[in-house]
Nucleic acid binder design. Sequence first.
DNA 1: AGCTGATCATAT
DNA 2: ATATGATCAGCT
Length: 223
Amino acid sequence: MTTISEPSCIAELISRFNAIAGKQISTLAEQLNLAIPNSLHYTKGWVGQLIELALGANAGNKSIPDFPSLGIELKTIPLNAALQPSESTYVCTAPLNSTIIDWQQSPVYQKLKHVLWVPIEGFASKPLKERRVGTPFLWQPSIEQLAILKQDWEELMELLQLGGIESLTARHGTYLQIRPKAANSKVLSSVLNDAGTLVQTVPKGFYLRTIFTKAILQEQFRL
DNA sequence: AGCTGATCATAT
DNA sequence: ATATGATCAGCT
């Protein structure tokens, strides 16, 4: 495997992501001496990691943006045959026994305030190695989008903090939602419920709804 | 068909 | 255990 260092400035990042636009997965994998899995079934995050390697993202599994010195988060986004996002986008772990922090300090805000979106052909009809990288673009939420994200985050955090975990479902939130994030439903961690009792629950994560990423791509490409 | 809940691999 | 990278698949 070939390792590439973190880009030292935005201009370097821009020239790197422009260089991968339109390329096939197989081309990038060969350049990095990386073996291509037969399918994504057992390697769901493989494309994301491929793009991280190709661009020199180096935050590991720490709760900080992928390009720490640039404060930019990298997100691949799978497109269906109509070139629309086909899946929600994972943001970060949801704290179950949360201590109160404010929006600006939250990992959700820290990651979403500046994102490099990398669209990828994601339709199953096309073999993984033939799928192409779309046109990556840097994005920052608008004032209006930020207000809704903040409102969502506050609503969801309030449910977590006030022990409302048992009533919290993926139906809460306009752009942000909370869904399970674990190896399987048998993985459990302890959390206080609204009666102040410790109960077991599957670990959760924050996700961006597809409707939101769809809007982001439409703004960008005027689809 | 889209959405919610479930799941898979890997690093530390 | 818990973070990262996400997509899968059953139900409505």
